[in-house]
Amino acid sequence: MSKRILITDDALFMRVTLKNILVANGYEVVGEATNGQEAVEKYDAHQPDLVLMDITMPIMDGITATRTIKGKHPAANVVMCTAMGQKNMVIEAIQAGAKDFIVKPFQPDRVLDSIKKLIG
């Protein structure tokens, strides 16, 4: 059975890019969220194996969403996928519960390697 992934990014281009990478490599995309609040709601609804999470988004940012998801689902696998790679942001994301931090732009293998390590 395919591993199930939730994509969270306010940029349509990035959601399409990530979805193409995931589907081409045998993963199921169970949902797409355009902000952190949607990510929390869709996590509750779909209980995915992993979430790819942007940080800078309207309504609710990705770090707040990660903290919320991890508070409700401590075993959740969240991987940050963001253009913001400064040290303080990485530390904040890890403290919120993120298990990896990918800086955009990325090569597809960087995303796939991270996912494989966490959920196979």
């Binding site: 940029a11 281009f13 800078t56 253009a83 913001m84 790679g85 400064q86 800086v103 955009k104 732009p105």
Partner: peptide, 12 residues
């Protein structure tokens, strides 16, 4: 997204 990625990298 191109602008976002350049800006994000510049922030780092």
């Amino acid at each position: 997204e191109l602008g976002n990625m350049i800006s994000g990298n510049a922030m780092s």
